[in-house]
Design a protein around this nucleic acid. Structure first.
Lengths: 330, 330
DNA sequence: AACTATGCATGATACGTTTCACAACAACAA
DNA sequence: TTGTTGTTGTGAAACGTATCATGCATAGTT
């Protein structure tokens, strides 16, 4: 280590009195005699040698880094997802390099381009750009969004979740159901929640309505709608399935201001169940997305060499958790 | 691009009919004649050339990546911080590589070692390992924790925040104050909140008590304490400063169960104000940490070459935000 | 003892950049 | 014309690693 900079394999080789290739093999689990290995390890220890990942990456084209592209990590669903992805990647010896898009389609594309600039071994993205270009020289797994036929998509069983929510509400004695949604205009997986909900209602012959808004509309239209459906202090619906937990709490508050109580007067079921994965009691009754499993699956698929016989949509099972906005006891 | 792999500068040079060094200069803003630059750019475009960051990193020892080491990103303070750090880094053309330690001191040390394995240009860490070893070959900025004399530490003005909380409570008419804290056993910056609180009380000659617990104790000791200080349905204290917003909400709930209402019977002020940075109304009255500024400052200091005349502790100003657990109107 | 097979250390080569010394050339002054 | 200065293109060298073809021992077989 004559220079001020970090010691290299060459230094270790000289110190240990072995050839360069031998040092390399030691750090790559090649077959090296016991005594030589000892010597190399001792020399490396003494010199404080660390493998230079950039040189390694240059040779191998493997970086042990994965880019994760998310809208944000302030929304707790995303932050729990990010944390689980990070842990799943770490477990497999990979590092996570995080990009935040703030729902900007251009930023999504920009980050994915950057990531493809051969600095990662794969990309996991939750994107809203319907025209996203994904080069095929690098593995890509999409979360909750269909991107293209050859991009695997990992998602919760949103359709089944919609069915389950409706089923639970009916089991809890509800007879007139309502589905509420607010979200991005991009037709995503969450549309399927509505379809599942409607499907169950149709088969079970349950009265139901749906109201879907865009983010830009804000919550006010919900208030108008609900107000119009209150007659003599009584809401027309006795069960509501809201497409997220956040919305559920908002609706509960709104109903309270209108004199309608949940779960006494109307039962509410949300979707996500993020609080559960944060180690807290769910803030509302909810359909729980299996976030840890979703993260594991994304990583598994991304890092698994063999992508041949993979369905393009991987659907993971959801479950129901009572949480105070329905009349069942936990 | 004869191989299946990505085109290199050599390919671009051949395609453009120029020398290798010329291509390099084009991508590094070296002085290149207009015509040559055109030719190179055109060839690069046509071939879909992208700079190989690993080769570049190998030569330059600059990676344009920064490691951020946090306990988790589930706690919303950390997730907001992480998001702001990510954005501040992106703005300066750096990528963020995130590690989650789950408060494990060994993991902290491991990640910092990994990061030093010449794969990042710097590290921003929020750590709890009192014996953390930080090599000096790579810039390190600590958040909210003193690490060693030559590691700059960026933190909120916790002492001033403690003073401010006490001052506000007094202004709001409180006469018997209480400070509550629960946290890690590592003496961190947040101890200063207590000191600031006590300092103000002492100077202003205000009656006050403090109760500090460790994470492992759980919340129950608070209940016992509070219960012991309720006489004839009335709490001995009329103002409480809790060391985080999370604790504040917990205490509010606990008090409610004991028949004491906030803000009617007792006024509560928390610390963090994270909700504000999430675009929401604060859940409780609080001392707001300037998270975006904290993040910017961390990044500024980390990437600023000149670390010579830098104070080892950079203290950023906090502010007060009313939020429903005090009797002032916003 | 002779031969083969196996295991393992060796050192040169290549990965795709940046950088540097040098050459080529133009512009200009004397 | 000659010499000087400045600009810009050139190609070789080096960054630190993984890998591969050699070659040398030793163990195993007949």
């Amino acid at each position: 280590m004559r220079r001020g900079s970090a010691p290299t394999m060459k230094d270790v080789a000289r110190e240990a009195g072995v050839a360069l290739g031998t040092v390399s093999k030691v750090f790559n689990n090649g077959s090296v005699g016991k005594e030589y290995r000892q010597r190399v390890l001792a020399a490396a220890e003494q010199l404080g040698y660390q493998v230079n990942n950039y040189a390694r990456g240059l040779k191998t084209n493997r970086t042990y880094a994965v880019a994760v592209v998310l809208p944000n990590i302030i929304n707790s669903f995303f932050s729990v997802l990010a944390q689980n992805l990070c842990q799943a990647l770490t477990k497999r010896g990979y590092r996570m390099f995080l990009s935040i898009t703030d729902f900007d389609p251009e930023a999504e594309q920009r980050y994915i381009h950057m990531a493809q600039q051969n600095q990662v071994d794969g990309i996991i993205g939750l994107t809203y750009n319907p025209e996203l270009q994904v080069a095929d020289n690098i593995p890509f797994v999409s979360f909750d969004r269909y991107v293209s036929p050859d991009v695997p998509c990992v998602a919760s069983d949103n359709f089944g979740g919609g069915q389950l929510a409706a089923k639970k509400l009916v089991e809890l004695g509800c007879e007139r159901l309502l589905f509420l949604r607010i979200g991005s205009t991009v037709a995503g997986e969450s549309d399927k929640r509505r379809n599942g909900f409607k499907s169950f209602c149709r088969v079970a012959k349950v009265e139901h309505d749906t109201l879907c808004l865009c983010d830009s509309d804000g919550y006010e239209p919900f208030r108008t709608f609900l107000q119009a459906h209150i007659h003599q202090g009584k809401l027309d619906y006795d069960g509501i399935f809201c497409c997220t937990d956040v919305l559920t709490l908002e609706i509960q508050k709104m109903l309270g201001e209108l004199g309608v109580r949940a779960p006494e007067d109307v039962q509410l079921i949300g979707f996500d169940g993020t609080a559960i994965h944060m180690g807290r009691a769910p803030e509302c009754s909810t359909i729980v997305q299996p976030i840890p499993l979703l993260a594991e699956t994304c990583v598994d698929i991304l890092l698994n060499e063999d992508k041949s016989d993979l369905p393009s949509l991987i659907c993971l099972p959801v479950s129901y958790a009572p949480g105070g906005t329905t009349r069942d006891k936990a």
